[in-house]
Amino acid sequence: MKTLYFSLLFIILLLFGIGCSDDVERENPLDAKNMRTGGIIPGVTARAGDSQVTLSWLSMGLDGIKEYKIYRAYKTPENFEYVASVPSGDLDSYAYTDTGLLNDGDNVYFYRITYIDINGQETPDPINPQNLPINWSVLNVIPSLAPPVPNVRVMEDRDLQVRLIWEGYIQNAPSDLAGYKVYIAPKAEEGQEQKSLQLVSIIDDPRVEFYIDGNDYPSNKINFTKDGISKLYKVVAFDQAGVESDSPILVGTSPNLPPSPPSQFKGRFSLGLNSYEVRLEWQRSLEPDVIGYKMYALLPDGTTEFKGWKYDPNDRVAIISDRYIIVDGVTMVKQYYVTAYDNTPRPDGKNDESEPSALVP
């Protein structure tokens, strides 16, 4: 009886183990019997171009794949025809460009991709796939002629800011214009590796024909920390099929301009017999390149008196002891203002100083 018991137990465990092994094998996403994927290659994308479509997909990192097959249908997702094969290799990703296609209108192309293993088995089966609906893994795209290149002007006329303007483009733009994309990268210094351009903005309103690369202080978004920073820019127009214009790469540099004057400037006077004291306060300048302030007194004849420095941009209070002035026999206090200066000197070596703040009193 013990022998029979252990024999039955062994058979049960063996059958259970086979079932588990089969379940594990079915977890392979490229397995045609995988109930979730049916063997479909994941992550396939299609990008339209001028009379062409480029298909891209990532490597699954699995052994045993010999090649990939590409199928195409025209106008309706049926009657797919074989187009080409792409050999498998030690690659992170694959791509194939299908050329000689018709542009725009109702010229819709549909694509499917299968793979061939080392035994010649094609998955998914293009004629009778397992565990898949009839419309499995269909990519559809319309080839399109790229829009004209926008004529972009690079404006470097504001502190810590570069403006890109292509005003008037929409007047002669194609009817299928969908918008614009802006790509930016920091310009590498000599001897450094140049970073690739990154998409920073999609403008989906074709009537918006400008982009401002600057600092958004309320959102604490800083794109320029000082004057003289250069970047690479690329503005492309794209159509409803997603095709982008072949735009050039431009260079823009934050200009060497003075910062904005300090705001919310106010003064409080303590009057004495022969002299007085004034406490000056102001709001910190928002520009990140501001490194200090200068205080001045303004005399009735328009001349100024320098009253001191502030070397810390967060130091926003100054107390000045001063003497009265007499104008037409009347004793008066002087007027005061403050300026901000940044960390980029002018060509003559002097501080890049802002316009004066408001006057007090």
Rank of each mutant, 00 (worst) to 15 (best):
D176Y: 11
T123H: 12
P133M: 03
P124I: 01
N131Q: 12
D104R: 07
I170G: 02
A185L: 08
S230A: 15
P147C: 00
Y111D: 04
I142L: 09
Q130T: 10
N128E: 14
N128Q: 09
Y183S: 11
V154P: 15
Q171A: 06
F238Q: 01
G168T: 11
V182I: 06
P124Q: 00
D204P: 00
Y169A: 07
L232V: 09
D204G: 01
D106P: 10
R207I: 03
G242K: 15
I203V: 14
T225H: 14
S230T: 13
V235D: 12
Y111R: 04
G214W: 02
S230H: 03
D227V: 00
E244Y: 10
Q240K: 13
A146K: 04
A241Q: 13
T225S: 15
I202P: 15
E189K: 14
G168I: 07
G191W: 05
R163T: 15
A173P: 00
A173D: 02
I203P: 09
D227F: 00
Q171E: 03
D157I: 06
M155E: 12
E193W: 06
P124G: 01
E209H: 11
G168N: 10
I170L: 06
S245K: 05
P148E: 03
D176P: 09
E190C: 00
K181Q: 06
K187N: 09
K181W: 03
W136C: 09
N151G: 04
E244M: 12
T114M: 08
P143F: 15
I229V: 14
F224R: 00
G179R: 04
T225I: 12
Y169S: 05
P218S: 01
L160A: 01
D246N: 14
S175G: 12
D216I: 04
W136L: 13
D239S: 02
S247Q: 14
D205R: 07
G214I: 00
L197R: 14
I203S: 15
I222W: 05
Q192V: 04
I113N: 01
P150S: 06
N151S: 08
